[in-house]
Design a protein around this nucleic acid. Structure first.
Lengths: 212, 212
DNA sequence: TAGATTGTTAATCGATTAACAATC
DNA sequence: TAGATTGTTAATCGATTAACAATC
């Protein structure tokens, strides 16, 4: 039985996918039980951090023993909602959208790319990774038909807010935004923005100072 | 004169690229002066946060007036080290590496993609966005020849650590990692890992709970 | 049993928010 | 000058780390 998640910190939730991925690696090495100490060493996180994060959701370990890898994977998978299927649509089949449409790791954690959209007539009706590109004019219709839960925005910055509005109106509940712009969405829509310029700029910042 | 950066928090540094980008947008709208209040509204950050972040580096505003947009852009650009050129190499010209090689925003903030590497003979000597793909065997030689500062890792997970080791040995000082694996690098190398599964998994987490 | 390791409570650390004096 | 808005200090909030009792 999982605890309620009401008071779980965002930082904790963001570490779970890392635990999940690492545990699958551990499992593939044939390891069946692992301590927070060993898992922490692999990830570069303190064992206390791991124990505290996991304890937010329940008691998954065995005192004096450690965590059963298979069991912990199943539990984290359930916490993250990765045990079920999510249908995602990618809007904007440019370089990045195209790369994401071909991204293998999606399916391995339960995401199905179920629709692709673009405004460019040259791209519409083309196939990408076995899936046809639809006209963005059909967005509302297709999002409903294919029961899309999550929209991935990879259009240019100036089009992103409009696309977000349409996705919300069509019934999408989560948005993963790659356009370099701050989107405004209703309270009940979950928005995650990936800002690639942050990573690169922060490297530049630290290199400029020549010290970690 | 900029303050020393020794005690500036990572959270602050990570917000600077967002301020920078938004200020350029503001500038393109013809606005010359902006208050922390107005800037904060655009970004979705409190005005106090902005003032405190900027104050870590100096006094850039004018009391009772606000911030001169052009001046603030120049200052943030200098803080982030974006006033100079950085040469980056992309290792792994798969879907994602290819998309990044075509990413326009890089050059707009002072990054030059100066080398591409792949292990696949079919890709070597091909041109991507006007740049030839080199054999990964030549990595050390080319990194030195072209004065590469930053390596972008877009190879499969199981090859990433090896690539990181070679980049470090070749003299790269920063690494931007997209492979889903925790890399170990020396203390003096600045490493930023983009973990795409985190964003998507966290959406899944919150949608599963149906509440923000 | 003794050693190991979890889960949890308390202490510390760091980041955000609030308040306000300084000053344009 | 009066109103506006910064920069900074103090208060609050949240997250991490340390310590340790519980227990396998």
């Amino acid at each position: 039985m999982l605890k309620n998640s009401a008071d779980v910190s965002k930082a904790t939730v963001d570490r779970l996918p890392l635990y999940f991925r690492t545990l699958r690696q551990v499992q593939s090495e044939g390891i069946e039980i692992i301590s927070s100490e060993d898992l922490g060493r692999r990830i570069g996180v303190t064992p206390e951090q791991i124990r505290k994060d996991l304890a937010s959701f329940g008691e998954f370990g065995k005192k004096g023993v450690g965590y059963f890898v298979r069991e912990l994977i199943r539990n984290i998978s359930e916490i993250l909602g990765l045990h079920r299927n999510w249908n995602v649509a990618i809007i904007g089949v440019g370089h990045l959208g195209w790369a994401l449409a071909n991204y293998r790791s999606f399916s391995s954690i339960g995401f199905t790319v179920a629709a692709l959209f673009d405004a460019d007539p040259a791209k519409i009706d083309q196939y990408v990774n076995g899936l046809v590109v639809s006209a963005i004019d059909d967005l509302e219709k297709i999002v409903k038909e294919r029961d899309i839960h999550i929209g991935v925005i990879t259009v240019p910055a100036h089009e992103a807010q409009d696309v977000a509005n349409r996705l919300v109106a069509a019934g999408v509940r989560g948005i993963w935004n790659f356009a370099p712009v701050v989107l405004k969405v209703p309270e009940d829509i979950w928005l995650v923005s990936e800002d690639l310029s942050v990573g690169l700029s922060s490297i530049s910042y630290y290199l400029s100072r020549n010290t970690k």
